[in-house]
Amino acid sequence: MPQTITKTSKDIVKEAMADVPAISAEAAMGLIGAPDHVFVDLRDGTEQAKTGIIPGAVASSRGMLEFHIDPDSPAHKPEFNQDKTYVFYCASGGRSAMAAKVAMQMGLSPVVNLSGGVGAWKKAGGRLE
């Protein structure tokens, strides 16, 4: 008997986008290098290597995020233990919205999602390195 999926991936992304504050690529561009913001790239390593990342961003794939945030995890990244605003992004904004929702549930705050992800960033003239 096949599985009965009651919620689609689109449903979950839509809920996350409704729960997580968003920032436009244009507004986010002004935050590059700002001492009170941290950009977090949620794409996997092959995607990051292929296109580059936003300058200064922390690489944290969606699959490792919870371990990178948790200070008691051996995989903890100290960049997540700062009093700053975290700007999450992925390729188009869906994975980062889901990741941001989980990060908020873990107590990371404030967290915002980059609307449209790297696609919107590049379209707005944002630099990748």
Rank of each mutant, 00 (worst) to 15 (best):
A34R: 15
A34H: 15
P35F: 08
P35M: 07
P35N: 13
D36Q: 11
D36T: 12
D36E: 14
V38H: 03
F39R: 05
F39D: 03
V40L: 02
V40P: 02
V40D: 01
D41P: 03
L42N: 11
L42W: 00
R43N: 03
R43P: 02
R43H: 05
R43Y: 05
D44P: 00
G45W: 02
G45S: 13
T46R: 12
T46D: 11
T46N: 10
T46K: 14
E47Q: 14
E47D: 15
E47F: 08
E47I: 05
E47S: 14
Q48W: 11
A49H: 05
K50S: 12
T51L: 12
T51P: 00
G52C: 04
I53D: 05
I54E: 07
I54F: 12
I54S: 10
P55N: 10
P55Y: 12
P55W: 10
G56N: 14
A57H: 07
V58M: 08
V58F: 05
V58P: 06
A59L: 09
A59C: 01
S60V: 01
S61A: 10
S61V: 00
R62N: 02
R62I: 01
R62F: 11
R62W: 08
G63N: 09
G63C: 01
E66N: 07
E66D: 07
F67E: 02
F67N: 09
H68C: 02
H68E: 08
I69H: 07
D72G: 11
D72N: 15
D72E: 15
S73W: 07
S73V: 06
